[in-house]
Design a protein around this nucleic acid. Structure first.
Length: 645
RNA sequence: GCUGUUGUAGCUCAGGGGUAGAGCACUUCCUUGGUAAGGAAGAGGUCGUGAGUUCAAUUCUCAUCAACAGCUCCA
């Protein structure tokens, strides 16, 4: 009997009889691992645990803790859902049913049968029943002809279409209980591992994502190996709902929308404006320190500007249409980005290699005609302000400048409490080169420089093809918020194209003209989006330096209103933001209202405080802190409310 | 942009072919209260907009606008 050598992730290796199954390897390591194992990586491919391994292999066993394990789990759950649907809706046809970041979905064609909340619950019940049966998933290789005839008989045209695109010899079916599906796998050993099921929502989705195709019913669900985990997940969803920036934005009077102003055009209310301006100020300071020069450019620009940049060709039809002047037949566009304006600033005088790098920074408000269905609170709007800057540098400075920007981005994230972040290197899609402008060699160079800069800063990156801007590759930053959700924030881009198109130049040490390289960057991305994410991250409890109202002075009764006003005036003289609540209400009520508005500090003043010239300090969320001398409080407060440096 | 759902007071929502209701917020009065909602009275809406059906439409139908969810998109 021959043996295979199996290398484990810890570097060790073991010999097993040829044809050993993943589950057997798991068992040989520990019983616990075997119990929790969900899938296995075999030489870089993810397999089922009961697939035979016939040659030497490097393996890694995945459990619920691993993304790969979860995917197998949810993928299998999608099959169980399909089985339940087939049991309840004979003749149902299936599209695709993949795992997603949180759970899975299956696109199904139910004919004209209605599907709503009640039906969802019935399917959920059936799924639990099927899961309890603990049916095993069986992998079966089938020929293309057999696969086609199986689904032809079933009348499932979607599966037939999918099989059509597959190569004979690479087609597999998976079977569990009474259900067989076309599937690449992998799957968990049995349905029995699925202990908790929740179907979350139903939505329409086009077959293959194409709106010309038929709309299928997409059923979203999530499953867990433990009931408790489902409950935690549902609590998380509740919490996310409570933190929704659209809800908090209204409640805390930060921003609003008006149908009359137009969709996707946010109105910043006074409190939201304070928050926003604090952020701007913080960024301005950091940028001055990093050698940026602030500039200001108008909100519109001649159409020719964007023809030159290439944006008009690329986005012209999908933009706000040109503005026309009454007399001369000029055309202007609302600026969708700031770079062309900054290029023109660069061109205002001849530049020497000694001048570079030049860094122009602007909080530039731009307008983009986003599809109506895309608008979402502050995260996707039609008018927004970027913390934009463009760095013009020599080719030999690109990497260094890029690294400096990465450091600035880190500083911003850390200062605002985003401790977890990752980055994505957004590359060009080599199969679709016509989507991009510029020569291959410059793209390759830019892509290489980004990766090197990221590596230098030990940034964990994932490279994604097809995500680049049309003029250059990007480094996009993702932060994880307090609820563990990922958001895309700032971006840095290397651009060899626009400087050429705008004929930017500098005189080199060789006395020759050279083209500079441009780095686009925006650590926040847009202030609107950043504020939205910040709201959700801190649930509206902003750090003291950002909080619109930092202090509420709460007199016990109207008799102490004068003292309350005196206190707030004194604090305002020290640039502290706040108000005195002099309403004819009881203290309990004033405290409640200030707590609900998430005011960080409440200063309660009554007879005692007036007599001793003190304030009773109460902190949002943590209650009474005792009485303090007003001066003492002010000193303490000023310490704590300093913006991060 | 596509599909679906929704649109009633500032907010959250109930109602329903015969021109509307609650709670909170708001105004006034009473109350002067020590760490998360004191009491009473009052004011506030041509039921998103336009058209159609009907003796009669806020309610039914259609269109349109917007919001929400999903898809597609994102310089």
């Amino acid at each position: 009997m021959s043996v295979v050598k199996i290398s484990l992730p810890d570097g060790s290796s073991k010999e097993f009889p040829k044809g050993v199954k993943g589950i057997e390897i798991a068992n040989s390591i520990s019983e616990g691992l075997a119990r929790n194992a969900l899938s296995i990586e075999v030489n870089g491919e993810i397999w089922d645990l009961d697939r035979s391994i016939d040659s030497d292999a490097a393996i890694k066993i995945f459990t619920w803790k691993d993304k790969e394990g979860k995917y197998a789990f949810w993928h299998s759950s999608a099959h169980v859902m399909a089985e339940a649907l087939e049991a309840l809706y004979p003749g149902v046809k299936f599209g695709i049913g993949p795992p997603i970041e949180n759970g899975f979905y299956y696109d199904v064609d139910l004919g004209d049968r209605p599907f709503g909340e009640e039906e969802l619950q019935a399917v959920e019940k059936k799924m639990i029943e099927l899961a309890r049966q603990g049916n095993t998933f069986t992998r079966k290789a089938v020929s293309k002809a057999d696969a086609l005839s199986y689904f032809k008989e079933k009348g499932d045209e979607y599966k037939l279409e999918l099989i059509d695109g597959l190569e004979d010899g690479s087609i597999t079916f998976y079977e569990q209980g009474n259900f067989t599906d076309l599937c690449r796998g992998p799957h968990v050993p049995t349905t029995g591992v699925i202990k908790a099921v929740k179907l979350l929502s139903v939505a329409g989705a086009y077959w293959r994502g194409d709106e010309k195709n038929k709309m299928l019913t997409r059923i979203y669900g999530i499953t867990f190996p433990k009931q408790k985990e489902l409950e935690e997940y549902l609590t998380l969803l509740e919490e996310a709902k409570k933190r929704d920036h659209r809800k908090l934005g209204r409640e805390l009077e930060l921003f609003a929308f008006s149908e009359k102003v137009g969709m996707g055009l946010p109105l910043w209310l006074p409190k939201g404006t304070i928050l926003r301006e604090r952020l701007e100020q913080f960024m301005r300071k950091a940028q001055v320190k990093a050698g940026y020069d602030p500039v200001v450019t108008p909100h519109i620009g001649s159409k020719q500007l964007y023809v030159t940049s290439g944006h008009y060709e690329k986005y012209g039809k999908d933009s706000f249409q040109p503005i026309h002047t009454p007399d001369e037949s000029e055309e202007f566009l609302l600026k969708p980005m700031n770079c062309p304006h900054h290029c023109e600033i660069y061109k205002t005088k001849p530049r020497s290699y000694k001048d570079l790098p030049i860094r122009y920074a602007e909080f530039g408000t731009v307008y983009r005609y986003e599809q109506s269905g895309e608008l979402h609170g502050l995260t996707r709007v039609r008018g927004f302000t970027q913390d934009d800057a463009h760095i013009f540098c020599r080719p030999d400075q690109v990497k260094e400048e890029f690294i400096k920007v990465i450091d600035l981005v880190f500083h911003v994230f850390k200062s605002l409490g985003f401790e977890n972040y990752t980055a994505q290197v957004s590359l060009r899609d080599p199969a679709n080169k016509e989507k991009y402008i510029g020569e291959d060699q410059l793209w390759d160079r830019a892509e290489r420089e980004i990766q090197e800069a990221a590596d230098e800063r030990k940034l964990v990156t994932v490279a994604v093809k097809g995500e680049a801007a049309f003029y250059g590759p990007k480094l996009d930053f993702m932060v994880k918020d307090a609820l563990g959700r990922n958001w895309q924030l700032g971006t840095i881009q290397v651009d060899y194209q626009l400087p050429q198109r705008f004929e930017l130049e500098y005189t080199g040490s060789d006395n020759q003209k050279h083209t500079p390289v441009m780095i686009h960057r925006a650590p926040f991305g847009s202030l609107e989006r950043f504020v939205a994410i910040l709201i959700e991250h801190c649930a509206g409890n902003f750090p003291l330096w950002l909080s619109p109202d930092q202090i509420a002075v709460l007199p016990i009764s109207e008799r102490f209103n004068d003292y309350a006003h005196e206190v707030i005036e004194k604090l305002k003289n020290k640039d502290i933001r706040g108000f005195a609540d002099d309403r004819d209400e009881k203290i309990g009520r004033k405290i409640r209202d200030a707590e609900v508005k998430k005011v960080p500090f409440m200063l309660i003043v009554g007879e005692k405080e007036v007599a001793e010239r003190k304030v009773s300090v109460r902190r949002h969320g943590s209650g009474d802190q005792g009485a303090m001398d007003l001066e003492e409080f002010a000193i303490h407060f000023e310490q704590e409310s300093k913006p991060p440096q």
